[in-house]
Design a protein around this nucleic acid. Sequence first.
RNA 1: GGCGCGGUAGCAAAGCGGUCAUGCAGUGGAUUGCAAAUCCAUCUAGGCCGGUUCGACUCCGGCCCGCGCCUCCA
Length: 454
Amino acid sequence: MLRIYNTLARDKQDFVPMRPGEVRMYVCGMTVYDFCHIGHGRMMVAFDLVRRWLRASGYRVTYVRNITDIDDKIIRRAAENRETIAELTERYIRFMDEDVGALGVEKPDHEPRATQYVPQMLQMIGRLEANGLAYRAADGDVNFSVRKFPGYGELSGKLLDDLRAGERVEVGAAKRDPLDFVLWKHSKPDEPKWPSPWGDGRPGWAIECSAMGCSLLGESFDIHGGGQDLQFPHHENEIAQSEGANGKPFVKYWLHNGFVQVDDTKMSKSLGNFFTIRDILKVFDPEVMRFFLVRAHYRSAMTYSDAHLNDAKTALTRLYTALRGAAPGKTAPDWSEPHAVRFKAAMDDDFNTAEAVAELFKLANEIGRGKMELAAQLKALGGILGLLQRDPQAFLQAGSSGALSDKDIQDRIEARLAARKQKNYLEADRIREELEAAGVILEDGPKGTSWRRA
RNA sequence: GGCGCGGUAGCAAAGCGGUCAUGCAGUGGAUUGCAAAUCCAUCUAGGCCGGUUCGACUCCGGCCCGCGCCUCCA
């Protein structure tokens, strides 16, 4: 039985989808005006794992991850760059696809863009107005009236009267309550706009997710995910809008992934302390980065540093080393085998990939003790996590060693072999040290000498 | 100020009321011409103070410290 930590309940709950055998999930994706940072990567990988595990559990999964392609920051950045919004967003969508794809994240079933769902948003705002939950303010914005929605604050555990709107940021004067949020922004000069019954304007931030989620998955669906920082106000607002408009429960299970931190502080765009996936991948193998993310539980905070990535690299190397000699090709896990049983129990416990990964190392240990037949199982279980699917040799030899080509390395290995045959160990060791200096490590085994990159 | 999360060995990171997490690093062995890889063994734990219990890292209470949300943010 899969159990999921539901933010709404603040507890783990048995997972029972609304429709038997089928799971519909929505995750808040990227606002596309800059490169993905590792925090985005974590979110993408975390929900990729959720989806993979649901699928491995036999569910038919429909996964929607939106793209926000219109908002204040996009408008500003495009203006700074003297390019159109479309040019800017298309470029960063492409970069996102490349970066996230490198991390082994599978494409969602749908990747709706906010600008494609304006009619659906307007329809929803209309219903909110009809239900007395939205009003057109003096400045022309259409706002959601937070106090008219009784459940407001349930997800984030906040009470309206405890919130201090305006303490840190100026509140729009036209709002009836400082906590009211904008559904539709009236148009300003030099900004993109769409016609609407409330005048030309553009969407507020949260309405897009309500509109896209409900359009693609229905007015009620199973799972909604996103980063912890979206819990309030974004997800709170989504619930208010969707339930206010539709009059039925919006989402059954809310999932929130923890942050990636740097120097014990949240990594974020606004703090400027972020590392882009792109930059990290210049130094580290993408699978190492995925492994780094998979090794921790998705809800806990984790700290990014090169040292931790190096640690992940060594650990992943151990797994691939155990896989040498495994038959190539894809096999399904044998779920009756003890390691797989524990792996499944771990994943069923709120997607505990940390514990599941530990099981992979136990398999590696068994393989090292001679149970070669478990290599297929290791690879199969790794595959559930989107890991270990490469040819081990290719992983272990990935990278480059300056001027030394693979052929050069092979030639030196031959030369060393000849020296060893003549018991010229001085020369043999010299060659090995030469290669080692170039980052190539030799391993003499019963079947000859193999090499890998450090 | 309100709400929430967390403090586990040198580092990273899990589960668990009573034998083992796991990875990296360290130490000692096996193996190797020497290494590497692998295997075996092994050292480093549970912020502090109380309580419950035959027994607590695990449950309860208090305290200290850190982080997050309350503003756009994964």
